[in-house]
Design a protein around this nucleic acid. Structure first.
Lengths: 194, 194, 194, 194
DNA sequence: GATGAATGAGCTTTCATTCAT
DNA sequence: AATGAATGAAAGCTCATTCAT
């Protein structure tokens, strides 16, 4: 990685953090620059606009999540076990790098104006969606999961997990996320199994 | 309803529409006033700030959704059938009054700054959450649903349905929402049943 | 004239003065607002952008100049005498309201980017150009002026007068503008006469 | 010419082109550097500021135009013929190297702030003005042109030609510039002749 | 000579909110 | 209740210029 690439990534991470924590509109470019100890003008040498930065962040996040799920996909275990692994992964991320999951929920999901141009459909989250699709297809092929519309399954998976993290973020959940892993894995498995 | 209450509601509806369609920050108070043919100053006679208006809208929306679910709750039918009814209701709303569901997803969910003060926890959506809770408790009491943490069940319900409507809104779903009703109702039932 | 129209015009006049004196880019919106004792935001209630303001100014200026030439056109005198009247008018304006002529030369003429959209061709200066055209056509009809391409004549008139005012503005002319009236009127007449 | 002088000139030409085409303020130093394939920092080794570059360009342009008129001045022909030659030259330049004429009209003429310091009066265009003056004086000496104030004649010449090129640039002229040569030469001659 | 990342002041524009009428 | 002109802080973004390498 060149110096420039490293700096680019550090900007992405700083912005990811701020956008997730304080909201997209409440976070200003000077805020991001200041948090990095760099000047506003220089930040614009790396990303031509706030919107473009937002789009690069969702790709970055999707890639990282996708890579992690890929690792799970490559393991030699049942779909049931993989479901649990994915739930664990998701919640672990929500604890360790909450900004990534929050970014999905609070920035990507709800600022259509920003992502409409350049992230149509699922372009910017394809690396993540693809892995979920692979997981599901394998489970169906292996005869473990019921053969249903992919989106019915995808919506369940992502909506459910996202919903739980949202509830956690709102301080609504009485218990730690980890304590829901059993229930949720079971629910998802029951919903998808043959 | 007094004249004043009627006008209050018409403001809520106009703002709901605009916030959902164009985003919270992209919608200005003058925009709302103009769409109602009233003056900015007068609008402030009804709602003291944009944030307060946003909070009133989520309560209004939650009440309407809650009322509808209440009707379902009062029907004499199995939990399995009720699940289907709720899914149908949700998707029907998403089609007929998309602004309500979109408001949940695109405004309430993602502007913590706005709702933090006054809508802590689930205060502003309690009428809706309460009905889901009633549905779930009855199902458990009746021995039809597995006795699990309420939030595990609630997250599934709401995350799943919200997720599907989001996918639809992004033009990602290949089929009409209605065509997913069977799959989704079945998945939810399988996840929650004893 | 309503109060609002009066304010609109006062903005045009203030901006005209500043743009002409200090240049279009060197004049900021806060500069204009301050010179009027009004707020920046309120100025935008009258003109939606700096560019639009610039275009309204050229129309305003063109109208005023056009009206003055119209008065000359309606006089019952020879083309030779009218030429002198127009030269006098132009120089008088350059002395009394130098900002108008300067605006033509220093703002309109040289900021294509600004006027390209909305002032194509001569749209925004048509009231002025039209009167020059009328003057010329009458002179030709009356047999006093040579029948030549209008633009050959228009370029002479306007380029010449504009050029003189420019030279004056650059403090290049050793004498007062008035002292050139004889020479210039004669030159123009000699150039255009039959 | 040394290597350094060559590079200097190539910068002048690139900047001339860009300033004329896109405007002085719309053209950035990075734009110029990029069009030359050189670095911003290095460009500053040749010209200490954007304003200084702008002033060097007008001198450069004026020299080239002056040289061409000098050639005409040295020809053995009547003032009438020379006028035509000058008009032809001007229009030919406007066609072949439009950036030069445009630079006069759109940059030099209208950015007083830039040229005020260092190009007072006609310092930076003296090589061009001098030749026009020589042409005029010879014509007067030779008894062909009327003896009038030089600036009355100069304003006619330059304002007229500049005006025509401006009209052409605005796509207002219905015909090609060349087709106006006869009319314009005749008009100028009639205006200046004894 | 040559590079280009870095600076930061300054610009245009927006908009929630107020208040005199 | 109703109006809408007015406010002004704050946002996103630009760009001439510098300087460490």
């Amino acid at each position: 990685m060149t110096k420039k690439e490293l700096k680019r990534e550090s900007i992405i991470q700083a912005a990811l953090k701020l956008f997730s924590t304080n909201g997209f509109h409440k976070t200003t470019i000077p805020d991001i620059a200041k948090s990095l100890g760099m000047s506003v003008g220089n930040l614009y040498n790396y990303f031509k606009s706030k919107d473009i930065l937002a789009k690069e962040i969702i790709k970055y996040t999707s890639d990282i999540l996708g890579d992690e799920i890929k690792k799970i996909n490559m393991l030699d275990m049942s779909s049931k076990e993989k479901i649990r692994k994915i739930v664990e992964l998701y919640f672990q991320m929500a604890k360790e790098k909450p900004e990534m999951i929050e970014y999905f929920l609070r920035v990507y999901l709800s600022h259509r104006e920003v992502f409409d141009d350049g992230c149509e459909g699922m372009i910017c989250v394809s690396s993540f969606v693809t892995e979920i699709m692979l997981f599901f297809d394998k489970g169906v092929e292996g005869g473990e999961l019921r053969d249903q519309d992919f989106f019915s399954a995808f919506g369940l998976f992502m909506g459910y997990l996202g919903g739980m993290v949202f509830l956690k973020g709102e301080s609504i959940l009485p218990k730690d996320l980890d304590e829901y892993i059993d229930d949720i894995s079971e629910n998802i498995y029951n919903a998808l199994k043959k």
